[in-house]
Each structure stands twice: as structure tokens, then as C-alpha cells.
């Protein structure tokens, strides 16, 4: 399938890319890794007149800890997360997630920023970032602004980005001691979207109770979902089998899946209940093992 014709623009500076967005407005799309956009163009789901390729702008592909935060440049490839020692040592939730995104070749091109900016509730990073309580930074004509992840996905395939803004960075607070996380995803085959998936991140206090917890749900509603009632149940509590089971039921209750080829809404809720419990258990085990 040959994508529809478009005008290709390749700015060298972020400011130039923003000017181009201002000039072309809704007719333009940002091209990052292109692994959601190009397939969508082939299928005529996306018909941009202008593609602004930000792949040539230097300094948007990085991964580092700074000032108590993990900073991920928007153009960081998924495979860079997979290969990073820092990620495998300190951010097990992110490592779990990248391994479940598409396949190795796709991860060599696909970007973390693109995975979020596409606004697809079936993508994997949104739930991960919800669990990690990330912040997204966007740059526009009036400078940079911070958007909390909970405000970033207001509606189906919609993000809080203005038409002339570019997602530049994702920031995540470095986890405190005794932290752990996990991402559990059921997919029909490699490269498929999740039938359902759960991201969990938590930390334990000195007496073994759950101090902070984040739970994000993938592809079980029109937007990525925070399982607020499950989080509230567990926060401050010493985890027990009964409590974890109840959290699974509450997470399923927080979701809003629909029937599709991947299964019925009822089946997906059952899956969520089970996956949430497993994600919490693995997160606790990892927290106990961490320094």
C-alpha cells in the first residue's frame, strides 16, 4: 500500500518545527518513529498534507537521571529503553513494558514520545506512565509547559497537546528505596494490541506496608485508565491475599472495556482482575528485593 502524497519537511531545530506547525496547523502531522503514523497513512486513516519529520533535530533522544528524576527525550527509541542498564536496574515496569511493545524491528524505530502523543488507549506506555505518575513536557510558540499524565489523555485518540505543540520530554520521579513495578499484558500474538494489560508501580515502607501505588490499565476503555479505587484500597495497607484480590476486582470495576475480536467486555474484566493481582504481587516481590 502506497501512502497518499504529502509535502515532507525536515527542520533541524525544535523552534523551526514549531513554526512549521503554526504555519500549517491541522494539515500537518509530526513524524517521529512513524510506526503508528505510516501504517495509518497507508490505510488512509491519516491524510496529512505536511509531514514534519523531527528525526533530524538533535538532542531529543536521551535517557538520563537528573535531579531525582528520570528524563526521557521524546525521540528515544523503545529499543534504547530495552538496552539501558539504568532501566533494567531501576525501572522494571518500563523494562517489562518495552519488551511487550510490538516486535524488535518496530522497537528500533518507534519512540516513547510517539507512543504517548498518538493518544491511542491501546498503546502500552500510557498505562505505564500513569502508574509511574509521569509528567509530559510540551514545547510550543510560548515556551515549554508541564502536563500531568492524568491530564494528558482527555478523550479517545485525543491528547492535551495543542496543534502547535510538540511533546519533548517525559519525566518520572526516581523511585524511592523498596520500590518495584510490573507490566502484565495479554496479547493474541506478538505485535498485537493488548486484550487487556495492567501496569503497577509501588513502594513499601519500613514496616512492609504499601506507601505509594499507581495502577494503569491498557485498552479497556476510550482512554488509558487509572485504577483509582484499587490504588486507594491498597495505599497505606499491609498487603494480604484478600486485599490484593479485592484490588483486582476494583481495578476491573474501574475499567470500561467493550466487546471486540479480542474478547467480550466480561472476559476483559476477568482478565484485568487476574492481571492486576499478579502485577501487584510481582511489584511487591520486586520491591522487597530492591535496595
Amino acid at each position: 500500500m502506497i501512502p497518499p502524497p504529502f509535502e515532507y519537511l525536515s527542520p533541524n531545530q525544535l523552534s523551526e518545527a514549531i513554526s512549521l506547525l503554526q504555519k500549517h496547523g491541522e494539515d500537518a502531522k509530526i513524524l517521529a518513529g512513524g510506526h503508528s503514523l505510516i501504517p495509518a497513512m497507508k490505510l488512509r486513516f491519516a491524510l496529512p498534507e505536511y509531514l514534519i519529520d523531527i528525526g533530524g533535530i538533535e538532542g531529543m533522544d536521551y535517557l538520563r537521571e537528573e535531579g531525582g528524576q528520570l528524563r526521557i527525550g521524546a525521540m528515544t527509541r523503545e529499543s534504547s529503553l530495552e538496552d539501558s542498564e539504568l532501566i533494567s536496574k531501576k525501572y522494571p515496569l518500563l523494562l517489562d513494558t518495552v519488551k511487550m511493545i510490538a516486535d524488535p524491528q518496530v522497537r528500533n524505530m518507534a519512540t516513547v514520545g510517539g507512543n504517548l502523543a498518538h493518544g491511542d488507549p491501546a498503546n502500552d506506555h500510557p498505562a505505564t506512565m500513569i502508574a509511574l505518575r509521569a509528567s509530559v513536557f510540551a514545547e510550543g510558540p510560548n515556551g515549554s509547559r508541564e502536563i500531568r499524565i492524568d491530564d494528558f489523555f482527555p478523550d479517545f485518540f485525543t491528547t492535551a497537546l495543542d496543534t502547535n505543540e510538540i511533546l519533548t520530554e517525559i519525566r518520572i520521579s526516581s523511585p524511592p528505596p523498596k520500590s518495584g513495578g510490573a507490566y502484565l499484558k495479554i496479547e493474541r500474538k506478538v505485535g498485537d494490541y493488548a486484550t487487556a494489560a495492567v501496569a503497577c508501580q509501588l513502594n513499601l515502607n519500613t514496616s512492609g506496608s504499601i506507601e505509594q501505588i499507581g495502577i494503569g490499565l491498557t485498552n479497556v476503555g476510550p482512554t488509558p485508565i487509572r485504577a483509582t479505587s484499587a490504588e486507594n484500597l491498597l495505599r497505606g495497607k499491609s498487603p494480604s491475599d484478600d486485599l490484593i484480590k479485592e484490588a483486582g476486582l476494583l481495578a476491573a470495576g474501574d475499567s470500561d472495556p467493550s466487546d471486540d475480536l479480542r474478547g467480550s467486555a466480561e472476559y476483559k474484566k476477568d482478565l484485568l482482575c487476574e492481571l492486576t493481582q499478579r502485577a501487584i504481587r510481582i511489584s511487591i516481590e520486586r520491591s522487597e528485593r530492591s535496595g
Binding site: Y8, G34, I38, G55
Partner: peptide, 10 residues
């Protein structure tokens, strides 16, 4: 990489 999902210009 999968060359069906990249524009030549990239």
C-alpha cells in the same frame, strides 16, 4: 528495521 514502514527520505 522494516523497510515497508519507512519513507526513503527518512
Amino acid at each position: 528495521i522494516k523497510s515497508c514502514t519507512l519513507f526513503t527520505i527518512q
